[in-house]
Each structure stands twice: as C-alpha cells, then as structure tokens.
Design a protein around this nucleic acid. Sequence first.
DNA 1: GTGATAAGCACCCCTCCAAT
DNA 2: ATTGGAGGGGTGCTTATCAC
Length: 396
Amino acid sequence: MWLRYGIDQDKTLVSIEDVPRGKTQLRCPYCNGELTAKKGKRKEHHFAHTNETCREVSRSDRLLPTLPLYDNFNIWLTGKELKQLKDLWERYGVNDRGISVKEVPSILIREKLLEHNPYRYGGEYQFTKLGKIPVGALSLMLFNQVQEPLLIERLQELEKNVQVAYLNDSPTFNECLRDLQIYQAEFRKILSNTLYYLQIDTSGGNTIYKIGVTRRDIETRVAEIKNDLASHFENFSIKVLGTWPHRGNVEKYFKHRYSFFNVTIIGNLTEYYNFFTPEDAKAVLRDLRRMQAKGLSPIEVDILEGKPSQIEQLIADNERAERRSQAIKTGMERAKNWGQNVGRPSVSESPEEFLGKPSSQRIIAALHEGLSLRQAAEKADVAVNTVRKVKALLNT
DNA sequence: GTGATAAGCACCCCTCCAAT
DNA sequence: ATTGGAGGGGTGCTTATCAC
C-alpha cells in the first residue's frame, strides 16, 4: 500500500496529486522523514521516503487507511477465492440461478458475499449485494447503498482508535491520528468531486463516452478535455450526459464494472468507453441516471468542510489549554524575577480583629461556660484548633 | 472580563503522646 | 477511657498576577 499524503510546515496533509514529481519539502505523516514524490507512468503515484522507509509505512501487517470499496473491489479475497466467486457468478449468478450448498465455499458465506435463501428454486444460495461487487454486477445505485454505510463505519472506527489511544496515552496515538486524518482527506476528496459522463461524437461517425471526476465546474473540465482530444480528432463535439455532485466514489467502481467496454485512445487518455450496440450505451447511461442526487448527511457535511472530529477538537482544546498554562507560568516566573510579588500578599489579621469575629465570640462564650476544647468546638461549630487559637490569644 | 497559576492562610481530619 | 497538647497532611477560600 502506497503512501499518498505528506505533511507540510503547517502540519496540513498534502496529496500526491498536488505536488510535482521529485524531492519535496513534505514530511512523512508517521515518522517525519523527508519524502520524494514518485510520479511515473507505470505505478500509481505515491510518496517514498527519501532515505529509509519508516516502520509505520512499511509494516506489512498494517494497512494504511483506505476507503472501503473505493479502489479495491476484490474485498479481502485471495486470488483463489476470487476465482471461485467469479466462477459461481458465470455459472449461476448471471442467470439469477440459485447455488446448491455443495458448491458454496464457507468463506464466501462468512464474508457475506453469498447468502442463504430457502425460497430459491434449485440451489438455496444466492449472491448478496456485496458479493456482486467483485464481479462488477451490482448497479451503481445499489453500489452506493452498500458503500455509504461502510464509509461512515470505517470513519467512526478510526475516530474510536484515536480516542482510545489518546485517553490511554498510547505510543500508537500519533499513528492513529494520522490514519484518521488521511482517511478524512480521502473521504473529503470523493465528496468534493463531481462525477461526470460525456458523449463524444467524432466526424467519422464514431461515438465514444468518457467517465471522470472533477472538483472544478464542468465547463472548465470539458474545455480541457477538448484540448486533449484536439490532437487525435479533427472534428468532434462533446455533450455532457450528466453530472453527479459528491459522487467521486463511483468513478472507480464504474471503471471496474464497465472495464469490458474500456478503450484507450492514446497514452494517458484512458477513461473512454466504446459500446458495441446502442442498447449497451443506453443501459450504461440508465445505470448512471438511476443514482439519485447525493444528499449529504451531517457527518458528510463536516467531512466536506474539513471540520475536525470531536476527538480532534478535544485534543486541540487540551493542547491550547496546555500552551496557555505554560505561557502563564513563564510569565509569572519572569515577573517574580523582576521582584514582583506573586501570590497572596502576607497580611495578617490583628488579634483584635480575629477575636471580634462572630465565630470567635461564640468560642469565648463557650469557654466561659467551662466547656472543654472539644465541647467548645462542638458548640461553636468550629474546629478544635480554632478554639485553641482563641484560648491562646485570650491568655496573652 | 475570563480563566489559569501562585501563594498564604484557615480550617479540617487524623495520629501520637502524656497526663489525669 | 477521657482530655489537652502538638503537629502533619490535605482541602478550599482568598488575593494577587498573568495571558488572551
């Protein structure tokens, strides 16, 4: 798993997409080591440590925080299990036929990719919504339904980790906090992206389609695409078939689901699709249009605005209080060194003032009755030592 | 003005000791 | 067993200053 974020001097996360390739001024969020941006043509763009990779990033038993079902649709299956699943899909799922118990690997049930349905004809097992995702069979609308709760669930899990690590003063606190912040940044990115789908008609009578995401307005993006395509087509027109704000999460799944129709025009222009029949093209567009407009939940609004989570707010408040406390302490220390009196000034009550107090008067009365110190203290509702003090002053 | 720290002080609670 | 004396530890109020 690649590291996709570094931190700048202001301690804010910076995405690999926002820096040029080569050595950077950014630091590793986990170990503070220097980072080099690796932005080549073959591998996914990522940061590498300029020197030695730190333990937190290189640890193989630990995954960097990633959005569930965002760019890995094999879920957690091994190659063999994935093959079994695809095989079952080909033989049963495609035709919506039930799968008999003999054919069902228990791991696929445990992971909720297949489920039991006693009303089915033939076999009593069928694909779940989740199970259809690895084979790209789930509609875009249902994909959203499956992914959205998982996104929130994972966010809350990471917040919980931070909270536990913070309260226990755990050595993994920094790691947990970075995990959360990276996840928030990724979450924010998909929410702030608008999914768009374009139809491109060329003068040769060909029609191709393009899926993509942008954070800018669609006109700007279309102008840019026009520019890209100008070197490959002489005459063409672009029609925006739809835009779906806050649906950046769908882009990768779309590519996964429709990879069969994917065509590469040239070089890096890879997000284009060519359908063999008009029906195919219509089905894809229908699939997209069945997605309702994305309404943001309060949690998603907070993420989109970059608002810190409750636990981060608490940590920030505590840190601010600590800084202030230190500032006050040093200020008072400095004042003391200047000869300034710090603290309560030593002024003492005169014996007359003390004896004049109502409580002292009550004590004197009790003592005159011949009561013991404890009895007098009890009667005057004061401490034994106060009675003693009064008595001592009376005797001077 | 608010909230924090420093220091003095009164007070409380408790223990120990010795005298009664 | 009761009482007075001495003193340590802890709490909380008071009064001061400091940073923001």
